[in-house]
Amino acid sequence: MGILLEISENLQRGKAKNVKELVQQAVDEQIPAEEILEKGLLAGMNIVGEKFKNNQVFVPEVLMAARAMNVGAALLKPLLAQGDNVSKGKVCIGTVKGDLHDIGKNLVKMMMEGKGLEVIDLGTDVPAQTYVETAIKENCQIICCSALLTTTMPVMGEVVRAAEKAGIRDQVKIMVGGAPVTESFCQQIGADVYTSDAASAADAAVELCKAAC
């Protein structure tokens, strides 16, 4: 079995210690960091994401895989910084104002990072203006809003309007999700994409970033 495949398989099983050792071994064998990242770590996370969408694995398995991914990526980071590696896109994510729930938001963040996106986590209880200011300052391609409460969902509409008012609506895509959020709500407030689960959100974000390039 090739070492990259081994990295991918150990990552899928959440074996952080093994992944760390294997990534180090791959680095020592002079395999380029980009290749280790793409064909080892990200390949493993992609499989985990697909299995999650198909109900073959569940959130704890995703978290374990993400932990293994982070351990491996930390070893590669200094090497990647030396090359021309750039992230696949930049997202700012947060749970909207008035809402302190962070489970869904954290999962989406983890899955997006697992796809190679750079994610700025704004936390919970985030005012509409903060999303927009961050998107401008950090040059994000995507604003991602989460809400668990029907009573806080309307803030997502405020984010759309704030982006319009700031004149960046055509430069940024707005994604929405959370237990009470639906496709029709997404359309109603003028957001761009609704997804029903974290893995689909990460897939959609990658596609949006590709289209933006």
């Binding site: 959440g14 959130v59 704890p60 978290l63 374990m64 932990r67 729930h101 962070d102 489970i103 938001k105 954290n106």
Partner: peptide
């Protein structure tokens, strides 16, 4: 039950 976002990772690690 489902742990909160802050403790979910630690809980998941303990599960396994």
């Amino acid at each position: 039950g489902i742990p909160d976002g802050q403790t979910m990772m630690d809980f998941s690690i303990q599960m396994y």
